[in-house]
């Protein structure tokens, strides 16, 4: 499964690569990283339909996660990739906005990787 992680914090890449090192080694999961909404869109343009799941932070400089979500859901109508939003606040407002924009799932910071792994397994199956 191809996963695109979008976060302005660069160390997120190292974190994911280490957290999922077994899955990466066994080719169960493949990660790509983008550090802004703009980069994420550029990546999606180049690698059409490769990413099955997009994990995006909401608070990012420039294009926010919500805007990215909106664009993805509008542009890739059939079939749109799954988008899971990560937010530091996890408040109702962001949650509802994301939901109305078509977010498939939510994670709150700090990311609980055990939960994330479970969610990924459910998606795979």
């Amino acid at each position: 499964m191809n996963i695109l992680v979008v976060d302005d914090e660069r160390d997120v890449q190292t974190l994911f690569e280490q957290r999922f090192r077994k899955e990466i080694r066994s080719n169960e999961l493949k990660f790509a990283f983008a550090f802004s909404g703009e980069e994420a869109l550029a990546y999606l343009n180049q690698h059409d339909h490769e990413a099955v799941l997009i994990l995006s932070d909401i608070n990012m400089p420039g294009m926010s996660g919500l805007e990215l979500l909106d664009r993805i859901k509008k542009k890739y109508a059939t079939p749109p990739p799954r988008v899971m939003m990560i937010t530091a606040y996890g408040d109702a407002e962001n949650f509802n906005t994301a939901k109305s924009l078509g977010a498939d799932d939510f994670l709150t910071k700090p990311v609980d990787f055990a939960t994330l792994k479970d969610k990924l397994k459910t998606i795979e199956s």
């Binding site: 914090e9 530091a88 700090p110």
Partner: peptide
């Protein structure tokens, strides 16, 4: 500030957990 502190703390927690696993 809460957000700004939350991010590095996440990394601290996560990396230390990973180190445990490693």
């Amino acid at each position: 500030i809460a957000h700004e502190i939350q991010n590095p703390l996440n990394f601290v927690n996560n990396f230390s957990e990973i180190n445990g696993e490693l």
